[in-house]
Design a binder for these strands. Structure first.
Length: 387
DNA sequence: TCTGGGGTCCTAGGACCC
DNA sequence: TCTGGGGTCCTAGGACCC
């Protein structure tokens, strides 16, 4: 989806269409109606406190206001950009709507979060057909029909990449944003993919691209021409081999159409840094509340967890994590609180904290009671193990 | 006045077991 | 007499993504 959160907000406030708008921050900048009947919107200039831009409209991006940017920094850059608070419930609703609309045309879907999906068009009727002398005409028409279905259902635009695999589709979906459609087959990789920066590959982040840059590898093409043995020596055999394959547009990953959660967590950044001991009376209830939220999330999603973890971010931004595995899985808030407290005690508590979080891992579907009582299985020792 | 919140996957060392 | 080779689980940290 194109600038998803921002686009949903523009549906609610159409008078902001074409304006530079950012979404993010806390809850203190709700739009309000003035006595004269006009809406009054907060701007970045009005914002005080911690937080980042969650997303922004394309005009705001043109001013340098991008997602992930600190709000105070964004305000210094472009003080007149309109600032709206995030409304996740609303975005989740639109997310369901666009996915439902797509599913009517292409039912094999991998969910990649609130605003992104992969589709397998292989078996969709008409996708393999040529139209006139265009062998990709059928799939192109299908992609346009999907875009129209999304627009009809939500009023929103999306961008699609149609290619032989997920890696290339992800890359291509970005090439003509917003409202884009890019169809690319393997023979066009050199001409259309190789000139792009290596960091455009999903899986090459800031660290890896910086390391590549120190070896004069900036583009995907340069990466493709790097010696695979050298890449493996430099980046490890797993990641190095993947880098080589990715640069050549190779990706065999199947669509994952359903998956179980691996972990579940809640965390919060404080309005001001808190000292673990000095601010105990403030910190304690927050910590307990996070445990209660995690317990609630576990119940809501039908899981119990066996490993409890805490995350601390200190005032210097350093992150420390601690975890402990319990004898049995639970979703009980008091039990989680108790074990989270034990985790906390093993972490350094001599400097101020910026953030605290609670996480459950080793999740099991269910309510914590064994579903069936497993009978004891008779076991015969192998010959060579007999005493 | 810097830098949210919710995730996944990978690596690596140590404990422990056969 | 210095000492193999599997395996799993637990823990901590880090890169990356939406």
């Amino acid at each position: 989806m194109d600038a998803f959160y921002a686009s949903v907000e523009l549906l609610r406030y159409p008078q902001l269409a074409g304006h530079a708008v950012a979404i993010g921050g806390g809850r203190l900048h709700q739009p309000s109606i003035q006595p004269d009947g006009q809406w009054r919107f907060a701007t970045l200039r009005d914002y005080v406190g911690r937080g980042v831009i969650t997303t922004s409209t394309y005009p705001a991006r043109a001013l340098g206001v991008h997602s992930g940017m600190g709000l105070m920094k964004a305000a210094a850059l472009a003080p007149d950009v309109v600032l709206l608070p995030v409304d996740f419930d609303q975005y989740r609703q639109y997310s369901r709507q666009f996915k439902t609309a797509v599913a009517t045309l292409a039912p094999v879907i991998e969910d990649r979060g609130i605003d992104e999906i992969y589709l397998d068009l292989t078996d969709v009727p008409g996708a393999q057909d040529a139209i006139g002398d265009d062998p990709l005409g059928g799939v192109r028409a299908l992609a346009l029909a999907i875009k129209q279905a999304v627009r009809t259902a939500t009023g929103l635009s999306c961008s699609i990449g149609v290619t032989p695999n997920k890696l290339l589709s992800k890359l291509c979906s970005d090439l003509e944003k917003p409202d884009g459609l890019t169809v690319l087959m393997h023979d066009e990789i050199a001409s259309r993919i190789w000139p792009l920066p290596a960091s455009r590959i999903n899986g090459i982040g800031p660290k890896a691209s910086a390391r590549l840059a120190t070896h004069a590898i900036d583009t995907i093409g340069q990466l493709a021409h790097a010696d695979p043995a050298w890449l493996m020596a430099e980046f490890g055999s797993h990641y190095g081999a993947w880098l080589h394959a990715a640069a050549h547009g190779l990706d065999e990953r199947p669509l994952v159409t359903s998956r179980e959660a691996k972990s579940l967590s809640r965390e919060t950044t404080f309005e001001r840094d808190l000292h673990p001991r000095h601010d105990r009376t403030t910190l304690g209830p927050i910590f307990t509340r996070l445990c209660e939220q995690v317990a609630h999330d576990l119940a809501r999603k039908g899981y119990v967890g066996r490993t409890v973890g805490v995350k601390l971010r200190y005032d210097d931004f350093k992150i420390v994590t601690r975890s402990l595995t319990m004898p049995t899985a639970t979703r009980d808030a008091a039990t989680i609180r108790q074990w989270a407290g034990r985790c906390l005690k093993t972490a350094p508590l001599d400097r101020r904290l910026r953030l605290i979080g609670v996480k459950m891992e080793a999740l099991i579907k269910g309510d914590g009671q064994p579903l069936v009582q497993e009978p004891d299985v008779p076991y015969t020792l192998p010959l060579f193990d007999r005493p």
